[in-house]
Structure formats: C-alpha cells, structure tokens
Design a protein around this nucleic acid. Structure first.
Lengths: 227, 227
DNA sequence: AATAAATATATTATATGCAATAGATCTATT
DNA sequence: AATAGATCTATTGCATATAATATATTTATT
C-alpha cells in the first residue's frame, strides 16, 4: 500500500537497523573528519573493504557519498584520495554554511520549547567538559550531536541535508587547523547558540550561528597567516 | 604524480567522457524532473536498467544519488518510487533554495563582466521564445542551462552543489503546479536575474533571485489554494 | 467459506567475477 | 647507457550471481 509520506528524506536514525553501506559510510566519514585518515591519504576500495569487514559494494557506495560530500576524490582506475584541506576553499564553503546554518538556527529557535532546555544544557556541559580536558574525540562527538539536534529541531530537512557536507568540511578543517586554545571558545560559541535557540529568540540564534561560523573562519585565517 | 588540485568537487562537464552511472543519473533525473516519470510512479532497478540500456550497477548508483536528492524513495527489497510532490515540503525547501540562490546570485554579480552579457541575453531570449511558444522542453532545458551558468559564474562550487537537489525539487514542483500563464512571468524573472547579475549589482541580483523564488512560491501556493 | 500455513515470486542488498585502463617494470635495441 | 616498446600489476567500472526479505499466491485445514 506504499504508506503515506514519512518525512524522512534519507538517512536512518542512530539506533535503527542500518545497511552495510550506511555503516561503511559512517565509519569512513568519521575517520576522514577526525583526520584518522589524513588529508591526501591514498585509499583503495579493497583496503577499506578489509578494514571495515564488508564487501566492495557497500564500501564503494559509501565512497561515492563521500565523493559527493567532497571528502574524497576518485581517480578512475587509479585510486582514491582523501581530499586535501584547502583553507581558501573552506572559507568559500563557510559562506554557504553560514547562510544555511542561520536559517536552521532561526527555525530551531522558533520551534524550541522548554522541553529542549535540559538536553541543550546537557550538550553544552558535555562539550565544555570535553574542551576543558582536551578530549577531542568527545568534543567532536558532542559537536555532531548538537548539529543533529538543531537539524531535527529546525524542522527543515532540506537545510539539514544541505548542511551535511558543509559541516563535515568545516569540522575537518577546524580540527586540522585548530590549536589547543581554540577548544574552549568553540564550546562557548556552541553553548551560546544552544541557549539562544532554547530562548526562542530567532534573531539571537542567527547571530549566535554567525558567531560560531566566524570563529571557524578566524581559526582558519589565523592558521593561514601562520604559514 | 596525482596532479595538482583541479577545482571540481564532483561532476564532469557537459561534453566530457562520462561514466555509465553519470549518464544514467542524468537520464533518470531528467525523466523525473520533467514528470515523464510522474510522482508516485513505481520503479525497479531492472526496469530502468533495460530502459537506459546499462547494467544494474550504474543504474543503482544513479538511483542512490537521486535518493539523496530526494527525487526517489527506496523501499528496501520492495522497490523504488518517484517521490510525491508535496507542496508544503516544497515551500520549506524553497526557504533554503532562496538563501543559497541569493548567495550565488550575489557572487555571480560580483564576478560577472562584459563577456557574460552576450550569453545571458541569448539565454533570456531562448527562454522567452520557449515560453511564448509553450515549448516546455526547451524552457526546462534553458532553465537548467541558466542555473549552470550562474553556478559557474558564482565561483562557489559548494553553493552550487547544495543547490542541485533544491533546484531539481523546485523545478519539478513548478512544472507540476504551473499553468500555461506561468511560463512568461517565469521567463521574465529569469531575464531580470541575468540582467542584474551581468550589471554587476550584487544587491539587485539578490533581489532578482528572491523574486524568482517568490514566483515559484506563489505558483505553488496558488495551486494549493485551488485544491 | 474462512483462515492459517506453506510456497512461490519479486525486489533490493551484497559479493564476486570480468573488463578496461593507468602506471610501473622489465626487455630489447641502438 | 638511454630509450622505446612490451608486459605485468593495481585499481576502479561494470555486470552478474547469490542472499535476504517482503509480498502475493496457493494450499490445506477446520
């Protein structure tokens, strides 16, 4: 009977049953973003197949998604490479990121209620703690979680979808260029964004989103100026 | 030697050698957007395989891209369906479309020069003629060409990339809901956008982009009000 | 006749095999 | 020794076979 419209455009949630291709995507995306697979690293479908334990097909499908996301480059019949982190490119991408993230933040603020406050504070706390201890893994994990929450809260799956590759790129670039001292300010910006959203003030949320992107921009510009 | 950075994030140009998967994507995308495969139509990988003349693998890869674009829905082990045109969803997507398209229009305006004027006028003319004669095929073709030109001119491949699914969705919805009388105004909006971009006036270009999206919005709202 | 179980069918998900090709290595020729 | 050609190797692109599963159909039972 084909059922009525379930609003999901695409990806299954965190705990749902996932295809091997989906698992492969998440695994490889994570390795790329966390710089575990560093920029420029050469990959082959076979390597990754064995690494994640699935056949070539799901890995190949994952790699195509990563290619669309701009995280890897495919050289036909030559191999695959993790994309370089080009700071000028990232700055260009950040313009798009800012525009869409503002929209998401504003929409989320308009829809947020008291119910979200607890979760938001929990996230802000987790991120602040991770930052204080220098726990990069935890920081990134919380960052991803916050992005998921805002996307969900915004009620705009199209914005969320557009954001996916931009977030991946921004996150990776930030991780690549960041210094130890950037952790705490970033956590602070996230906390302010969450607070603005929960307060229901759309304009404040937009400003907070802009401020967050500005921080990333500055981190990258500073790194460039050090070259 | 792996060559230096070629700025392409992804898709090959119009005339370059294309993989079967790329060809399949373009063919099926076109059929979906032009409503040749109508909303709700049931598909199978095998059907499409035979229809486009390739094996299942490239068709499957194309379908996955279309899935990410939101043009088809995949029901695991049940089949595939062309997405319905949900006007409320489209209106949500148009908010994102507007935000990104404004950015693209502004960037294109800042980078446009005298060289582009001829092409722009040619495009505007082609679209106006198609509209006058009621040549939907030609209209859509020109519309796509204009989008490609603006994306190229903007110098922001990330915005262009984000726009792809939004343009497909907006185009399809517009084709679905439009009436004969919408053709000419749409062509007019496109012409104004092109003119604003070529004039180098970023603010005017943004306004023109907004006006174009507003026209789509109105077309859809009107259709909804007729239901 | 109605219902439940069993079976068949349709379809995607995954694995694997083969083809095409880019690049590296080896060989022969001068 | 240097170079051109040939051959080998690695790698993705594509096709196809198999597995898993959802749905439809049939059959048996009451």
């Amino acid at each position: 009977m084909m059922s009525s419209i379930s609003s999901d455009t695409c990806s299954p949630g965190a705990d749902e049953a996932r295809s091997l291709a989906e698992q492969a995507y998440r695994a490889i995306e994570d390795m790329v973003v966390r710089l575990d697979l560093p920029p420029g690293a050469r990959l082959t479908e076979n390597d990754l197949s064995q690494r994640v334990g699935f056949g070539r097909t799901p890995v190949r499908e994952a790699l195509q998604r990563l290619h669309y996301d701009g995280l890897v480059r495919v050289f036909p019949r030559k191999g695959i490479a993790v994309s370089e982190v080009n700071p000028l490119d990232v700055l260009v991408a950040l313009d798009v990121y800012a525009a869409v993230e503002r929209l998401v933040a504003a929409a989320a603020a308009r829809r947020a209620g008291r119910a979200e406050e607890a979760l938001a504070e929990q996230m802000a706390g987790a991120m602040a703690r991770a930052a204080a201890v220098g726990d990069i893994g935890g920081f990134v994990e919380t960052d991803k979680a916050i992005d998921r929450i805002l996307a969900e809260l915004s009620g705009n799956p199209y914005a969320a979808r557009a954001l996916v590759p931009l977030q991946a790129m921004a996150r990776r670039a930030w991780l690549f260029f960041r210094r130890e001292s950037d952790l705490a300010p970033a956590a602070e910006r996230h906390a302010e964004l969450l607070k603005a959203v929960c307060s229901g003030d759309a304009e404040a949320a937009e400003a907070a989103a802009e401020s967050l992107v500005a921080h990333v921009r500055e981190t990258i510009k500073e790194a460039v100026s050090r070259l």
